[in-house]
Design a protein around this nucleic acid. Structure first.
Lengths: 122, 122
DNA sequence: TAACAATGTTAGGCACGGCTAATTTAAGGA
DNA sequence: TCCTTAAATTAGCCGTGCCTAACATTGTTA
């Protein structure tokens, strides 16, 4: 039932989640800025996510995560935080690099490895 | 000069490298088997890699890495081994899972993080 | 040597995800 | 109210990388 989602869509989902927390409402333009893509790219991605029931987006309006989208976004962001924290606090990496790497690794890590990282930090 | 390469091409390069070490000569079929794709997919990928000067591949013949391809493949495989070793020996993960995760993470990790992992294991 | 099996390639199509250019809508100011 | 501008959308294109179906080549074997 939980349809698989691409790494790209995970990025969009996460960006929306973070923007919503920071600024309240989320527009196509904001996402484009954060993800460093053009607005048409965001439009297309959001449309796809809407079909998958992850966001709600009335035309020309702001974008809101559905319950399901929210759950997924939080899960992705949770992975992100764990990975970043590990890189920063355990490996002692520069926060910017830790952030960058977390962004990419978060899409490709198994629950087991994630649990391993977490265990390690306690 | 070192043209950037996609994660997918890295997989192909690595597979060829490993196959060459294991069995000596490498055929389209072998790569297809290892990467779990069809032969036409391999044909296309190999053609692209040939254009980039990474492999040599006479029609209907075996595939051989060029010097440049070899250097890149070894570098990728080195990353792979470090990551796998970390997951297995430091985090104590199952070797199969460590292998799987290494395969995916190796394409998305910065030199800094890699160095961090390595440092950690000494 | 002729035919068959295995291997490889080509042709053509699909999904993803990016882009630019052109159009549409919404919102604010004269 | 009308007009300008910012934001968003649509249309259309491109590259990547996968697939199936059809064709070509190689090598083996009867």
């Amino acid at each position: 039932m939980t349809r698989k989602i691409t790494a790209n869509m995970e990025d969009y989902l996460e960006a929306i989640h973070v923007l919503a927390q920071d600024r309240g409402n989320v527009r196509v333009k904001d996402i484009a800025q954060v993800l460093n893509v053009t607005m048409p790219s965001v439009s297309g991605a959001v449309k796809k996510m809407e079909k998958q029931g992850l966001v709600s987006h009335p035309k020309y309006d702001t974008i809101v995560l559905t319950a399901r989208g929210s759950v997924m976004a939080e899960e992705i962001y949770r992975r992100h935080r764990i990975i970043k924290s590990f890189l920063e606090n355990v490996l002692g990496l520069d926060p910017d690099i830790a952030e960058q790497d977390a962004c990419r690794i978060e899409h490709n890590i198994s629950p087991e490895t994630l649990a391993g990282l977490k265990r390690f930090m306690e």
